[in-house]
């Protein structure tokens, strides 16, 4: 029994995902591993195109069927291997155990269904024994939870503002009390004042319901506000993983992380220009042989272009960079 207790809620091991078309193969996710315990929040940070959304979709097996492929690695949810689940188990898992909040609330609601019907849909699927009144009751409950008046349940999505729509999307995700919510840039499409509202609401919900969460974002401010653990993703790899404290306070960092922090405006220091990271992410169809960040790195060494860096580990803090691993020291 004790072994069961030690199984983390979600474990991703050496996950590799490609998108294969006739013309090219895109290496979207290249061997990432992470664990998530119940009630914890993991922040998945990275530039656009780093493979964050791909990772999230693979957790629900929602990758585009014709092109997306998991080529290697395992995803285990509550001890169950995702790859071996049949369609029925998969449907039970989607929305029931794991729910997803999509990026754009404007498009993730069906324009011709009332809000109550849309929230009720997954309740109906996961609780076939519920009658109409019970479903409507639960719908009103989750609407209250996200701060929308009950009497708006029979309205259509276009009658809501952007922030309200995102609340509805969050309500849909919460409807069946999932153990894990994957929030894929839940605030990117919202303006800043609404962002703050939505984030604090999500934090409250997480604390009251004890749900685990994966927060996908490129906003380090949101990470600082919400996450226990942070994984920084670059070109399909996790280049730095650690607790929020490790990422925000520790001494040693991956040069990319340093660059990310350098791109945030600091209110205490007057600077004329921010220092962005020069260059673009490598072409995912043609990744460099060594460290994927080497072409943009200001601390790039000869070895970085030839060899993949190993992992430097300090407690839970992991950095994939030659600067901190023995190999580099030997080479210097």
């Amino acid at each position: 029994m004790s072994e069961v207790n030690h199984t983390p809620f979600l474990e991703v091991k050496d996950l590799r995902i490609i998108y294969k078309t006739d013309l090219e193969t895109v290496y979207a996710v290249n061997g990432i591993s992470f664990k998530l315990e119940k009630g914890q929040t993991l922040g998945l940070v990275g530039e656009t195109g780093a493979g964050k959304t791909t990772t999230a979709l693979s957790l629900l097996r929602l990758l585009p069927e014709r092109t997306g492929k998991v080529v290697d690695g395992t995803i285990t949810i509550e001890g169950q291997d995702l790859a071996t689940m049949d369609d029925e188990a998969l449907r039970q898992m989607r929305g029931g155990q794991i729910a997803m909040i999509f990026q754009d609330p404007m498009t993730s609601l069906n324009p011709v269904m009332t809000v109550a019907d849309q929230i009720g849909e997954s309740i109906m699927i996961h609780n076939p024994e519920f009658n109409k009144e019970q479903i409507l009751g639960r719908v009103k409950e989750v609407l209250n939870l996200v701060g929308i008046a009950e009497n708006r349940a029979s309205d259509y999505p276009h009658q809501f503002s952007g922030g309200m729509k995102q609340r509805v999307v969050i309500a849909m995700a919460l409807a069946c009390n999932p153990h894990l919510i994957i929030a894929d840039e839940p605030t990117t499409a919202l303006d800043v004042t609404i962002q703050a509202q939505v984030i604090s609401m999500m934090r409250n919900l997480r604390d009251t319901l004890g749900t685990a969460m994966i927060m996908i974002t490129h906003d380090l401010g949101i990470v600082a506000q919400t996450c226990d653990n942070v994984a920084i993703m670059y070109a399909g790899e996790l280049i730095e993983v650690g607790t929020a404290e490790d990422i925000f306070c520790a001494e040693k960092h991956h040069p990319y992380t340093v660059g990310l922090f350098g791109s945030i405006p600091n209110l205490n220091v007057k600077v004329d220009r921010l220092s962005p990271i020069p260059g673009l992410m490598p072409d995912p169809t043609n990744l460099p042989e060594g460290c994927p960040f080497a072409p943009r790195c200001n601390k790039c060494m000869p070895i970085c272009e030839k060899q993949k860096p190993g992992v430097y580990q300090d407690g839970e803090h992991q950095i994939r960079c030659h600067l901190f691993t023995g190999a580099a020291k030997g080479g210097q």
């Binding site: 629900l60 929602l62 989607r94 929305g95 997803m100 498009t107 993730s108 849909e121 699927i125 409807a175």
Partner: peptide
């Protein structure tokens, strides 16, 4: 996206 969202809801 709402089709994807519906799928994600089971």
């Amino acid at each position: 996206e709402y089709v994807k969202a519906a799928k994600a809801g089971g």
